[in-house]
Amino acid sequence: MRELERKYNVARRTVRRALDSAWPEPRKRLPPQPSTLDPYKAAIDGILLADLDAPRKQRHTVTWTFHRLFEEHSADVFYPMLGRARPLLLRRSRHLPRGATMSGLQA
């Protein structure tokens, strides 16, 4: 058992559990962590919903959305985070009726 500890650089308990069962224990599910975009989702929703009516060339890019959030709401979000979340938010916003927001409130 000590040879296995040294070879795989693990604790004695880990080796014991591995020897006791052929299948590993299922991983524990962590609770979902809140996103730093959560406080600004209503503002992002408003921007995206307004963009649905705008011509294609006049819609907000990720850069414009990022700058607008920073200037209007002093948002402390990172550009890459907004870039990853925008397609998901955009997909959600396309399925809403006009005048609605993601949270169900009137714009």
Score class of each variant (00 low, 15 high):
42 A>C: 07
56 R>H: 08
30 L>M: 09
39 P>R: 01
51 D>P: 01
52 L>N: 15
43 A>R: 09
39 P>A: 07
53 D>I: 00
35 S>W: 04
47 I>S: 07
57 K>G: 06
39 P>N: 03
57 K>E: 14
56 R>T: 15
59 R>L: 06
34 P>Q: 09
40 Y>M: 10
45 D>N: 11
55 P>T: 13
52 L>H: 06
52 L>G: 10
34 P>S: 10
48 L>F: 05
56 R>S: 14
44 I>H: 00
41 K>H: 02
36 T>G: 00
36 T>C: 04
49 L>G: 06
57 K>A: 12
41 K>E: 05
42 A>N: 11
55 P>H: 09
50 A>S: 14
50 A>F: 00
51 D>K: 11
40 Y>F: 14
57 K>C: 05
53 D>N: 09
40 Y>S: 05
32 P>R: 10
50 A>G: 13
54 A>F: 00
50 A>R: 14
37 L>C: 03
48 L>Q: 13
31 P>E: 14
60 H>Y: 05
40 Y>W: 09
51 D>R: 07
39 P>W: 01
43 A>Q: 12
42 A>Y: 02
31 P>C: 06
58 Q>I: 10
34 P>F: 00
59 R>S: 09
51 D>E: 10
58 Q>V: 12
33 Q>M: 08
57 K>L: 08
42 A>G: 09
53 D>P: 00
47 I>A: 11
43 A>W: 02
39 P>Y: 03
55 P>R: 13
50 A>D: 15
59 R>V: 08
37 L>R: 02
30 L>T: 12
43 A>M: 11
37 L>Q: 02
58 Q>H: 15
50 A>E: 15
58 Q>N: 14
54 A>P: 00
32 P>W: 00
43 A>T: 11
53 D>M: 04
32 P>A: 06
48 L>H: 05
43 A>I: 11
53 D>Q: 09
38 D>Q: 11
56 R>C: 10
44 I>E: 07
31 P>G: 06
36 T>Q: 08
36 T>A: 06
54 A>Q: 09
56 R>M: 13
56 R>Q: 15
48 L>Y: 01
30 L>F: 03
35 S>N: 11
47 I>G: 04
34 P>G: 05
60 H>I: 03
38 D>K: 10
57 K>V: 14
37 L>M: 03
43 A>L: 13
37 L>F: 01
51 D>A: 10
57 K>H: 08
45 D>P: 01
48 L>P: 01
54 A>D: 10
38 D>E: 12
48 L>N: 07
60 H>C: 09
53 D>S: 10
41 K>T: 13
51 D>S: 11
58 Q>E: 15
30 L>C: 05
51 D>F: 00
49 L>A: 14
46 G>T: 13
41 K>M: 10
35 S>F: 04
59 R>D: 06
48 L>C: 12
59 R>N: 08
30 L>R: 15
46 G>S: 12
34 P>V: 11
34 P>T: 13
44 I>C: 09
45 D>I: 03
40 Y>T: 04
43 A>D: 10
52 L>M: 15
43 A>C: 07
39 P>S: 02
31 P>F: 02
55 P>K: 12
47 I>C: 10
53 D>H: 03
43 A>P: 03
39 P>F: 00
33 Q>I: 09
49 L>C: 14
59 R>Y: 01
46 G>E: 14
33 Q>F: 01
47 I>R: 04
50 A>N: 14
52 L>D: 15
45 D>A: 08
36 T>Y: 02
59 R>I: 06
56 R>F: 05
46 G>M: 12
44 I>L: 12
47 I>N: 03
37 L>V: 04
